[in-house]
Amino acid sequence: MKHFLLPTIAALSLAGCTEAGPRKGVGFTGIDGEPRTLSTRDTDANFGRSLSVPVAFAELPTRQVISDAPDQGAQALVAIDNGGRLVGNAVEVGGSDRVLMLSSVAVNGSLFAVLRAPENSVFKITSATTASFGAAVPRLTGCLTAGNVYQKGKSSRRTQGLAVPLNCR
């Protein structure tokens, strides 16, 4: 009887030490994986709201444009002019020091990924930025590139954006 009564009393006394309501940990802090502090805030409500760039890019509506542009280079310039610069029609990409907007534009049925600066910001493109964008397009969009990276503007002060044709099949 003594072996049953002592563990029961210990469990009941420890159960009375906690507050009512669910408590959630705030993160991994050691080898044992247990949180060191507790939070009563509902952390699961915000989990998963931030989408990865390819998923967010796929969910964006593609802007459809009809143009008399004769070749892929001219169509890319039209795509840059129509690329998104706001969160509703583009996906934010880049680091904490520079955020750029990635959107999709179809010119005469040809799909382009367009990289532009957000509204009311300065966008300086170097040759390294152009090469980096071309290399990162498959990772950012989930599609393969179907041509060269096109730049609108001749100097880093006047550059408006970049566009690359996509093959998403």
Rank of each mutant, 00 (worst) to 15 (best):
Q72D: 11
S52N: 04
V53D: 10
G95C: 00
G48K: 08
V55W: 03
R49F: 12
R63M: 12
A90C: 09
F112G: 01
D97H: 06
L51T: 02
R98C: 02
F112W: 00
V53T: 10
D97N: 13
S110T: 14
F57I: 15
V53P: 01
F57H: 00
I66K: 14
G109D: 10
Q64R: 15
P54C: 01
G48V: 12
L86C: 06
Q75I: 04
D71F: 08
A56R: 06
E59M: 11
A58P: 07
S67T: 01
L77S: 11
V107N: 11
V65S: 09
G83I: 11
S67D: 13
G84P: 04
A90E: 06
D81P: 01
N89L: 00
E59Q: 10
V55A: 02
S50R: 15
Q75E: 14
I66Y: 14
A90S: 12
A74N: 12
V78P: 04
E92G: 07
V55R: 14
P54S: 01
S96V: 13
L77C: 06
A90F: 00
G48T: 11
R49N: 00
V99L: 10
L60E: 14
V87R: 08
R49T: 00
G95H: 05
R49D: 00
V91T: 06
G109F: 02
S96Q: 12
P61M: 14
A79D: 01
D97F: 04
D68K: 08
G48S: 14
S96P: 10
G84N: 02
S110G: 15
G95Y: 02
A74H: 01
R63K: 15
G88C: 03
F57Q: 05
V65E: 11
G109R: 03
L86Q: 09
V105R: 08
L51A: 01
L77V: 07
F57Y: 12
V78D: 15
G73F: 05
Q72N: 13
G48M: 14
M101D: 06
I66V: 15
S96W: 03
V87S: 13
V65P: 03
G94P: 01
G48R: 10
V87A: 15
P70A: 15
V93D: 01
N82S: 09
S52E: 05
D68H: 00
P54T: 00
V99P: 03
I66A: 15
V55E: 10
S104P: 07
D71K: 07
E59T: 04
V107H: 00
F47L: 14
V93S: 03
S67I: 11
G88H: 07
T62C: 03
Q75M: 15
G84S: 11
R49K: 09
V99Q: 05
S104R: 10
L86S: 12
R85V: 08
S67R: 08
G83S: 12
P61K: 15
V107S: 00
A79G: 03
L86A: 09
G88I: 05
V65Q: 11
L102F: 04
A56K: 03
P70Q: 13
E59K: 06
S110C: 14
A69P: 07
A76P: 08
A90N: 07
G95M: 04
V93E: 05
F57G: 04
N108G: 12
T62D: 05
R49H: 06
V55T: 13
L51V: 03
Q72T: 13
L86V: 08
A106V: 09
